[in-house]
Design a protein around this nucleic acid. Structure first.
Ligand code: MN
Ligand code: MN
Ligand code: ZN
Ligand code: ZN
Lengths: 150, 150
DNA sequence: ATGTAGTTGGAAACTATTTTCAACTGGAGT
DNA sequence: ACTCCAGTTGAAAATAGTTTCCAACTACAT
């Protein structure tokens, strides 16, 4: 399930859940809070779990996994592929973007620019293939890690 | 380790290995053969192992993993990220390309086109970030899976 | 307050991958 | 051809991320 969401207002978790007969549990509020406070910063389920434990010491990692999957389904979160063993998640702000990943320090920076529209046309013509989504990750060196005149 | 390789001639495995003091074992020849016979088709370590078993029934999966990692280091193979639980590998033909992945049947098709050069300039200007590599995967529907007027 | 569909945490299972280690071998040197 | 050893192998065990199971729990509509 992957729906397109285009909002400018903040996400009303309560409304999104109840509309589907889902409960607004403390655990879900907690994960949502962590994602919101770290908007723009992709995190692993384990990292998110660590944050949750501070305010909710009994929260299970399993619940974090379940919640993140649910949040992706209802458009609250997005999966981010950084080519690491673990999957990453971030708040879905509704703005399409990509990621710059520093191969030295691992810092992740969002990039708004996207050239996929131009590619789409070319692909449809040359390949008879209808592209519905894509994922681009750019790897390199951030300003802090670059200066290495060894 | 990620070196840039630009060859037009076929890959001389023997030469690449011996130059580094590595042995040209039957197992390595076998994996190389599978990659070569399936050039352009990304495969998982397990799939590659299955092929190898046909001609080399005693080959261990561990050896396939080790060999693929080695092949990536010496530029014989490339990792392909298709956002599935398992990693994929394919022969490194030296030609930069991306992948079209059908979300219905899973078929993978190569795309030669790339707009990264245009993005690179923009990124360097706007983000002060030096991009050294990137990975783009495009998901959608191949011709066979598209016609679904339900 | 009650009832119940939905939710939770912990354990166990599962999958992909890496590590360990004793036995084996390619191929350079003789 | 024989020796030798650095490099390699396969099986088992370990590790890491994730999913499944299930009995106990709870949000919230009635
Ligand atoms: Mn982002
Ligand atoms: Mn390819
Ligand atoms: Zn894009
Ligand atoms: Zn490219």
């Amino acid at each position: 399930m992957e729906t397109i969401f285009n909002w400018s207002s903040p996400i009303d978790l309560q409304e999104r859940l109840s509309r589907r007969g889902l409960k607004n549990t403390p655990q879900r509020k907690c994960v949502f809070g962590v994602l919101t406070r770290n908007a723009g910063k992709p995190m692993t389920p384990d990292q998110i779990h660590q944050f949750c434990l501070k305010s909710n010491p009994r929260m299970g990692l399993t619940t974090v996994y379940r919640t993140l999957e649910l949040f992706c389904d209802i458009g609250v979160a997005m999966r981010v592929h950084l080519h690491e063993p673990s999957q990453y998640y971030e708040l879905n702000t509704g703005k399409h973007h990509h990621h710059l990943v520093c191969v030295a320090c691992g810092i992740v920076e969002p990039v708004d620019m996207c050239m996929i529209d131009e590619m789409n046309d070319m692909i449809r013509d040359n390949h008879d293939f209808v592209v519905t989504s894509h994922c681009l990750s750019l790897f390199g060196y951030c300003p802090m890690c670059l200066p290495k005149p060894n």
